[in-house]
């Protein structure tokens, strides 16, 4: 399988602070890679660099053949193919659920409204929210908001989905409904890079788990390897803390 995301020597400095220090990794097509680590370990910064919401100080990132970190690249074209789901959902509060989902296909991809809405409804059915098509975001629960956000990202037919702590802002009883949707996506062969604290999800869905600390990748492996037999002391310590 070819690499869908390739990160080489990613470094990001916030003033004195090294948020990322020479990080290299890749995500193969169809793979689900979960990135874990304590807060401030740089995992979100790394994820956000993949669609250039964060500009690297040094290093290169490719999505397929597209050179994300190169100045001359058409970043908008790349972002069309890289979906992103945020911790705080970031639904557009002045648009209905369906409008949230169809905005980008209509505005960016110039897909005819009727066609975009038909596709949007398919996706809302898929995340179990077709009856909310005309609801406003504020009328939804957190879990519903996040499922709409996933449908919105899927509406662009992305090659890759990035998840930035998608369940961290949710009440505990709503975590499962979001993880179920993500798990289904992983099983269908969507390429996913997921930053999360949900170890259950990592065990169930991840092909590989990457542990980061202080801007560096400490250890990576299959969920079984990493969770059951961590090689590094820091990994073991973190896991003991969180599991």
């Amino acid at each position: 399988m070819p690499d869908r995301i390739r990160i080489e020597g990613a470094t990001k400095n916030f003033g004195e602070l090294k948020a990322l220090n020479n990080v290299s990794m890749s995500v193969k097509a169809g793979e689900t890679v979960v990135v874990i680590g304590p807060s401030g370990s740089g995992k979100s910064t790394l994820l956000r660099a993949v669609n250039r919401l964060e500009v690297l100080t040094e290093g290169d990132i490719w999505v397929d053949e597209d050179h994300v970190t190169h100045h001359g690249s058409d970043i908008r074209k790349i972002r069309e193919e890289v979906g992103m789901v945020f911790q705080n959902f970031n639904l557009f509060p002045h648009l209905t659920v369906l409008q949230n989902v169809t905005l980008s296909p209509i505005t960016v991809k110039k897909i005819p409204r009727a066609q975009a809405e038909a596709r949007g409804m398919e996706l809302l059915v898929r995340v179990g929210l077709s009856e909310k098509r005309d609801a406003w975001p504020e009328q939804l629960s957190g879990g519903q908001k996040q499922r709409v956000a996933i449908a919105r990202a899927l509406a662009m037919d992305p090659k890759v989905l990035l998840f930035d702590e998608p369940t961290s802002a949710l009440d505990p009883e709503m975590v499962k409904e979001v993880l179920d949707v993500m798990l289904a996506l992983a099983k269908e062969g969507m390429t996913m890079m997921v930053v999360t604290h949900e170890m259950g999800f990592a065990k169930a869905a991840a092909d590989r788990v990457i542990f980061m600390d202080q801007g560096e990748i400490i250890e990576s492996g299959t969920p079984k390897e990493l969770f059951d037999h961590p090689k590094n002391e820091r990994t073991a310590k973190f896991l003991a803390h969180i599991l």
Partner: peptide, 17 residues
């Protein structure tokens, strides 16, 4: 909120869009 601009950019919209 800043997340609104980020979400729009992540969806492929230009800054002016």
């Amino acid at each position: 909120p800043r997340g609104q601009m980020e979400a729009a950019l992540a969806l492929g919209l230009s800054r002016s869009q």
